[in-house]
């Protein structure tokens, strides 16, 4: 039997927000190649949930593990294994994209030329896709990551990632009303 590695594990992960109340709890395990859509009550809640799984915001209760690294205790290790795509994509121009690739290569301690080559290869394979999102996805894939976290992406962003990196695990957050059919996690009623 094929056994896939666990990339992301959420154990009762909850964020208590002053404005949106409780976001979560999230309990799930995501393995390589799997994708998950998380529904949230508002755009802000969706952003917070994405940032929680991107190891940017710490859950107020419960735990999130990225490749077995606790995002609360070892956020840098967790962040090295994931790519975070902020809401709206990367809206700046081509020069800014080039600078951002070099910047990421430095911060992630990667070879600059190799990173640039990789980023432009991804960009080329997403040529028919929305520009801002294609750039954002290419940036997220500059480092060798196991997980991509998308904050309220455009439609079919996960499919686009799947085309260029089939083994990667994907988590995307969406506002509940924007999801006609899919909801993988129960959404708490708005306060």
């Amino acid at each position: 039997m094929l056994r896939l590695d666990t990339v992301l594990r959420a154990v009762g992960a909850t964020f208590e927000d002053r404005r949106d109340g409780l976001i979560g709890p999230y309990d799930f395990t995501l393995r390589e190649g799997q994708a998950l859509v998380l529904a949230a009550a508002s755009p802000r809640a969706a952003s917070i949930a994405a940032r929680m799984f991107g190891a940017i915001v710490k859950p107020t209760a419960g735990t999130i593990y990225v490749d077995e690294y606790d995002t609360r205790l070892q956020p840098p290790e967790a962040k090295r294994r994931l790519g975070f795509v902020d809401a709206g994509g990367f809206t700046r121009n081509a020069h800014a994209f080039d600078c951002e690739v070099a910047f990421r290569a430095d911060v992630w301690n990667l070879d600059r030329a190799g990173s640039r080559q990789r980023a432009y290869a991804v960009l080329a394979s997403l040529a028919t896709f929305d520009d801002a999102w294609a750039r954002a996805i290419a940036l997220a894939l500059v480092a060798n990551v196991d997980l991509i976290v998308l904050d309220q992406p455009c439609a079919s962003a996960a499919d686009a990632i799947r085309r260029v990196a089939p083994a990667i695990a994907i988590v995307e957050t969406r506002v509940a009303r924007a999801l006609p059919f899919v909801s993988s996690v129960p959404v708490p009623a708005p306060a």
């Binding site: 940032r51 991107g54 940017i56 840098p76 290790e77 962040k79 902020d86 911060v107």
Partner: peptide
């Protein structure tokens, strides 16, 4: 900016 906090740094 969020981008700085997405970086794998202590």
């Amino acid at each position: 900016r969020t981008s700085f906090f997405a970086m794998p740094l202590y």
